[in-house]
Design a protein around this nucleic acid. Structure first.
Ligand SMILES: [Mn+2]
Ligand SMILES: [Mn+2]
Ligand SMILES: [Mn+2]
Ligand SMILES: [Mn+2]
Lengths: 221, 221
DNA sequence: TTTAATTTTTTGATTGATCAAAATTCATCT
DNA sequence: AGATGAATTTTGATCAATCAAAAAATTAAA
């Protein structure tokens, strides 16, 4: 019924809401997120509104309806289950599964997703630490601090990386930064816009604030 | 580059050529095979010809160019590797994988197909006994007789079922007819348009000629 | 409070895929 | 050879998705 394009738009709106903490999303944000022309996003918002998947207020933005949110979380679930499956079962690297999942999320049947989910032991997070919505579409995002806000010189555990760029993920892996691994922030330098990280295994290294903000951690007891 | 629709058209042409033993395929055959209106198939043949994937002679038909055949066998390979993976690794039934594979064949990356192929031990046939083209696109179809042409009262082994209908496959499975299983044709009745089959495990039962023609076998030593 | 800059929407067009129905061509059967 | 029926192609239209560029609205600055 819904096309893969529509699914991507809904997913994008859902994720922008999540990230910005505001359910009202501008057409500009959507156009940027999906890399389409502004007018394209506007046109699509009208058809989504006609389908009852978003409510649209011209010059203001859109927000997902309950039905739109339901669809979005289901796509997100498929995406993340597929990613984990590719890593856990197919032996692919966490840095290369996003692209594949971006396509497969639209074509993998619910039956197949459930088989994967079962084989993976009903996991709650994907290879990047992104939470996996339940089969009923419920998603609970925990609020972890990034390396910018966490305690200094305290034992931490990486729980999530909020960026899917292959190059960035490979860089992190090379320095021992992956969900589950232990690290410590040695120092921060506001003026230099960078901080020093020491992974449990590996040499300490510096990271710009922008990159650091994408690494979420929890304090280790 | 090529859309999933184009891939399906190429696959259809390839399979019709295979089945009919004639590389020249009419637009009518294609329209019937893909369940689209005749004019739709004609229009698509023009664009495929423009792309150099088929040669098209109006009122006569099309044949795949080398490039078109190359693409077709690659799609066929993806389809069949996926089907076998779904059965062998995901534990799905051979009767239900065709639909899923029909979509996944367009979106599974070559990298992923190769991982599946590796996990499956470089298989040569899919769950229905359909041969799997090599990664280079080479496909060798063996010429097995169907239950209509094979020897009577001789030990046989089912090697292939040339129909993907869920209901039919479930019916066959229920009677012990699956690739690898041993059977015997007890009798044929031309007038009744049916024959009697005795599976190694299970009761003998009758089968219409049309259904019987879809079951390919080889003689057991 | 005008003016300028930015964002958003409109407009006009294109491409891919499809259909129904009309027109054409082909094959067959007197 | 001419008529008839079947297959094929054309025509005219629709729908989804997109873009570039013009127009309008909103926001920020002077
Ligand atoms: Mn996608
Ligand atoms: Mn992820
Ligand atoms: Mn297909
Ligand atoms: Mn098959």
């Amino acid at each position: 019924m819904t096309t893969s394009t529509v699914e991507d738009y809904l997913k994008c709106i859902y994720q922008e809401s999540q990230r910005s903490g505001n359910s009202l999303i501008s057409t500009g944000q959507i156009a940027a997120g999906l890399k389409v022309a502004p007018g394209t996003a506007t046109a699509m918002m009208k058809t989504l509104a006609d389908s009852g998947l978003v409510s649209y207020e011209p010059y203001s933005g859109v927000r997902l309806t309950p039905e739109g949110a339901r669809l979005a979380t289901h796509v997100l679930r498929r995406h993340r289950v597929v990613e984990l499956f590719l890593v856990q079962v197919m032996g692919m690297n966490w840095s290369e599964v996003h692209k594949d999942a971006e396509l497969l999320e639209h074509d993998v049947s619910d039956r197949l997703i459930d088989r994967m989910d079962e084989m993976l032991g009903r996991p709650t997070v994907d290879p990047h630490g992104d939470p996996i919505p339940s089969a009923r579409g419920v998603l609970k995002e925990k609020d972890y601090p990034s390396l910018l806000l966490c305690g200094l010189r305290a034992p931490l555990r990486v729980v999530r990386v909020t960026d899917q760029e292959t190059g960035f993920l490979l860089f992190l892996e090379g320095h021992g930064i992956m969900p589950g691994n232990r690290i410590e922030v040695l120092s921060r330098d506001e003026a230099a816009d960078s901080l020093m990280v020491r992974p449990e295994s590996g040499k300490s290294f510096s990271l710009g604030f922008r990159a650091a903000s994408k690494i979420l951690v929890e304090t280790v007891a």
